[in-house]
């Protein structure tokens, strides 16, 4: 008996602690989950100190098994911090998509902290989820005073 290969989409967020990696992956997982997919998300958040390497994996599809993305199986790799690109690049499939800060015109960011939201905007181009779903999740995950800045940052990444 052979079980059909399950189609799973794998997205890894990477960067340094304090750069919004976990937050971005939480928002992404939220968007996908609300669209009715089965989602799993794995991260190791050990020490609360800033500055160490951080990775967070999100996998979704009709069925997802392991929460961790197998070696070299990332369909998307979103790296928030340029120094980490070479560290994590090996995780990407040959056909996979790499998204890095250079893809964003960072001079137009409302604040340096909003880079993760702009990167989500950039990632959103690759999925046909309604734009409103992204905006709702952003609102649900940030305090109100950041909503306007986040909308600007998201647009910056989303608009080609």
């Amino acid at each position: 008996m052979t079980t059909n290969q399950v189609q799973t989409t794998n997205i890894r967020f990477a960067g340094l602690g304090g750069t919004g990696v976990i937050k971005a992956s939480d928002i992404f997982a939220d968007v996908v989950f609300r669209q009715g997919h089965t989602v799993k998300k794995a991260e190791v958040h050990g020490m609360s100190q800033r500055g160490g390497s951080v990775q967070s994996d999100v996998r979704f599809g009709s069925e997802v098994h392991s929460p961790m993305i197998p070696d070299g199986a990332c369909d998307f790799l979103v790296v928030m911090e340029p120094t980490q690109i070479e560290v994590v690049r090996g995780g990407l499939r040959t056909s996979g998509t790499l998204i890095v800060p250079a893809d964003i015109d960072t001079t137009k960011l409302p604040s340096a902290k909003s880079l993760n939201v702009a990167m989500l905007g950039r990632l959103s181009r690759h999925f046909d989820f309604p734009e409103s779903a992204w905006r709702e999740s952003l609102r649900a995950n940030f305090p109100e005073k950041l909503h306007t800045a986040n909308d600007t940052a998201f647009d910056l990444g989303r608009t080609p």
């Binding site: 340094l16 602690g17 050990g46 020490m47 100190q49 800033r50 500055g51 160490g52 390497s53 070696d71 120094t83 980490q84 070479e86 560290v87 994590v88 090996g90």
Partner: peptide, 13 residues
Amino acid sequence: EPVPPRGKPPELC
């Protein structure tokens, strides 16, 4: 086994 590249260790803030 493949050895993952070493990331950056955390430091005191």
